[in-house]
C-alpha cells in the first residue's frame, strides 16, 4: 500500500522557487533518504508533507488521503515529525511522554505503565528517565523520547530531519535500529552515511529537483 505520495509538488518560500516537479512514492515499510546542500528545500519538503508549509501546486497523499483541511488531523495522527532538536514540552519526561494524551484527540488512548516501560526498553532508555526533569535530558535522549512518544501514539510514518547528526554512537544506533524496522515507513533528510542502508531509496536535491540516486 502506498503511504506517502508526492505528485508534481512545487514549493516556494517568500516568493522564491525552492523545489519543482517533486515526485516520490513510498510504500508501507519503505525508507527514503534525501540529501542536498543546505537551504535547498529538504527540510521545507518534510514540513510540507506534515502540512506545516503550503505547497504551491501538486498533490501530497498520505495513507490514501490527499493532504487538505479535511484530512489534516487524520494525517497528523499517522505521522511523527522528528526534528534535530525535539521539544519535549513538559517539565518532566513522564509529562512529555503523556503530553499528547492531554489533547482531545488522544484522551481515550492513554497508555498504561507496562506499555510505557516496553517502549522505553525498545529505545534503550532506563525507566528512571521518567522522573527526570526534561531540561536535564541530553540531545540523544530527547530524540529517543520523541520517538517513544510517537510509538505510544501508534504512529507508523516517520518524517525525520537530520535526527542523528548530533547524537552519540549509542543513541544513533538505537534510533537507526528502531526506525529501520519494517513496520515503519520513513522519509528522512540526512547526511549520515549510516542512515543510508541497503533498504533505503536515496534521493538528492539538485537544481530544485528531487533526483533518485541509483
Amino acid at each position: 500500500m502506498k503511504l506517502i505520495e508526492l505528485e508534481q509538488v512545487v514549493l516556494k518560500r517568500g516568493g522564491q522557487l525552492l523545489l519543482e516537479e517533486v515526485n516520490l512514492t513510498l510504500r508501507a515499510g519503505e525508507q527514503a533518504v534525501i540529501r542536498g546542500p543546505s537551504g535547498c528545500g529538504k527540510s521545507s519538503l518534510l514540513a510540507a508533507v506534515a502540512g506545516l508549509l503550503p505547497v504551491d501546486s501538486g498533490r501530497i497523499v498520505l495513507a490514501g488521503k490527499t493532504l487538505g483541511p479535511d484530512s489534516i488531523q487524520a494525517i497528523r495522527g499517522r505521522i511523527a515529525f522528528i526534528g534535530q532538536e525535539p521539544l519535549l514540552g513538559a517539565e518532566t519526561v513522564r509529562g512529555a511522554l503523556l503530553l499528547p494524551f492531554t489533547f482531545r484527540a488522544h484522551r481515550r488512548t492513554l497508555p498504561d505503565e507496562a506499555r510505557i516501560r516496553q517502549v522505553l526498553t525498545e529505545l534503550r532508555l532506563p525507566e528512571t528517565v521518567l522522573e527526570r526533569a526534561a531540561d536535564q535530558i541530553s540531545g540523544g535522549e530527547k530524540q529517543r523520547l520523541a520517538i517513544a512518544r510517537a510509538l505510544l501514539l501508534g504512529k507508523d510514518i516517520f518524517l525525520a530531519d537530520e535526527i542523528t547528526s548530533a547524537l552519540d554512537a549509542e543513541s544513533r544506533q538505537a534510533v537507526l535500529t528502531l526506525l529501520g524496522r519494517p513496520e515503519f515507513t520513513l522519509l528522512a533528510v540526512a547526511h549520515d552515511p549510516e542512515f543510508i542502508t541497503a533498504r533505503s531509496r536515496n534521493y538528492r536535491v539538485e537544481n530544485r529537483h528531487l533526483l533518485a540516486e541509483e
Binding site: A50, L52, Q73, R76, G77, I79, A80, F81, P86, L87, G89, L99, P100, F103, R104, A105, H106, R149, L153
Partner: peptide, 20 residues
Amino acid sequence: PGTYVTRLLLGATPAEASQP
C-alpha cells in the same frame, strides 16, 4: 513557534497547541 508546532503535530488543535 517550536512549542506550537510540536503540540500541533502531536494531535493538538490550534487552540490546544497555542495554550502555553
